[in-house]
Design a binder for these strands. Structure first.
Lengths: 142, 142
DNA sequence: CAGGAAATGAGAAGCTTTCGCATGCGCTGG
DNA sequence: CCAGCGCATGCGAAAGCTTCTCATTTCCTG
């Protein structure tokens, strides 16, 4: 199961790493912060340190297992890498994050990079707006 | 001259604010960090505090005089707002930043936000790549 | 099963950015 | 032109997120 993914990344299979991976799987499309992972695991009875969470998430990112996103709030959020690239649309009022993918935009980006002599690596497109159901009173819940 | 822009923003015209504005004008398209503004002004013989630089830049941003960008490095960079929106392509090797604007992409973004019921506010598109002349040995010069 | 390398937890430290407060300065009304 | 109020400044302290340090524990190979 998850053991293999961790081993494939060249990392030892340890309890913290397994737990974090499980948690991320359970979170699905939801984006979680390191702090949140930490608190959820503590609440789950795990004995884990915040530093370990950061370390492991960084290692997972390097191994391509998870993706790290930085929105304007300043801190990072993580999600399992499901292989398919996507961009984000964020509601500035309630903090909700949706994902999307638009081939027209992807294509134009490749062209723009090529025109300017860049070997394209990655990109980040984030649309900030206000979602329709912005009655949402839960501002910045982190 | 610049006095008017500051006054229009509802701010008192003071030496620090004038100097920062001048400096940004001199920088043109270059993106500078708060720290950099601070050091450049000190080097120029100004007596200024880092906190003031941050405060003034934040006020200028609120007034629409400057734009703040956050790249993946973690800290913010600023540039004078010349009125025309643009996106960025950043070289991950040398840190060079170029600007571009693509109407096809802009258009698709508006459509995507509309489709999903968002009142679009702003957006941030950053392409990370490696530029052709990446012999550039000046990694992260901040 | 033993030994060595790698991983962990806790706290300290780092970095950017903001805050609090006493002092200083720009600006408006007299 | 001057006085006085209040915003602006500078400094140091502090906040918030993330990384580092290091002694201890855990995993894994042989």
């Amino acid at each position: 199961m998850e053991d293999q993914e961790i081993r494939k990344a060249g990392l030892k299979v340890t309890a913290p790493r397994l737990k974090i991976l499980e948690l991320l799987e359970k979170c699905g499309e939801r984006h979680v912060s390191a702090e949140e992972v930490y608190r959820l695991l503590l609440a789950d009875g795990e004995e884990i340190g915040l530093a370990t969470v950061y370390r492991v998430l960084t290692q997972f990112e390097a191994a391509g297992l998870v993706e790290r996103h930085k929105f304007e709030d300043g801190y990072s959020v993580f999600e399992l890498n499901r292989g398919e690239h996507h961009d984000h649309i964020v509601c500035v009022t309630c903090g909700k994050v949706e994902e999307f993918l638009d081939e027209t935009i992807e294509q134009r980006q490749r062209e723009i990079a090529a025109e300017r002599g860049y070997e394209i690596g990655d990109h980040s497109l984030i649309i900030y707006g206000r979602c329709r159901d912005s009655e949402c009173p839960n501002r910045s819940k982190k």
